[in-house]
Each structure stands twice: as C-alpha cells, then as structure tokens.
C-alpha cells in the first residue's frame, strides 16, 4: 500500500468508527420507549459530562509548579467574569488571554 492510500484507508476507518460511536444511541433507543428512568439519565448526563470534561482538561496540570498558579488565575478570571457578566465569549476570551500571557512570558 502506498503512503496516500494508507492515509485514505485510515481516514475511512476512523470516519466509520467515530460515526458508529455517535450513532449507537439513536439506533438502540427509539423515541417512544423512554421511561422516567431514561429521562432522568439523559437529564443528569450533561452536568456530569461537563464536570468530567473540566477535570479531564485540567488533569495534566503539573502541581507544585507555577503552572498550577496561572491556570488557577485564568480559571478564576473565566469563572468570575462569567458569574458577573454571563457572557460566554467574554469569559472564554479573557481567561484564555490571561493564560496565554502567562505561558508566553
């Protein structure tokens, strides 16, 4: 297999594998059959996933280094601004700029 064919085949395989993971729940559960337990699960999942994603993003921060300090400051900026202004864009951009300043200096 030459290089380009290998890449194309890999992309095809990855596309299918990814799509299967996203499609599965729609094939397993039809619209009519939801129980109250099922609704409860699908309502509780977003807050849980969000908590997990935040922890996942922060898991590689090295503790006992300066990194944890500026990561905390950037998080504080994002959180504080968001509670104060409720403007997602503003909170994200400000926190990121603060973080970038620390990383790059």
């Amino acid at each position: 297999m030459n290089e380009i064919n290998y890449l194309l085949a890999a992309m095809l395989v990855m596309t299918v594998a990814t799509y299967i993971t996203r499609l599965t729940p729609f094939l397993l559960f039809s619209k009519g059959q939801e129980s109250s337990l099922f609704n409860y699960i699908s309502k509780s999942t977003p807050p849980m996933v969000m908590t997990i994603l935040v922890i996942y993003m922060l898991k590689d921060v090295e503790y006992l280094t300066f990194e944890i300090v500026y990561t905390f400051i950037a998080l504080l900026v994002t959180t504080g601004l968001h509670i104060y202004k409720r403007n997602a864009l503003l909170s994200i951009v400000s926190g990121t700029i603060v973080y970038m300043i620390f990383v790059q200096t």
Binding site: M50, L53, L58, T79, A88, S91, I92, V93, G95, T96
Partner: peptide, 11 residues
C-alpha cells in the same frame, strides 16, 4: 486553554 474555559463556562 480556550477549550478548558469553554467547558468551565458551560459547567
């Protein structure tokens, strides 16, 4: 960090 900040905001 923008991705982290996005998830924090959504949290």
């Amino acid at each position: 960090f923008a991705a982290t900040a996005l998830f924090v905001v959504l949290l």
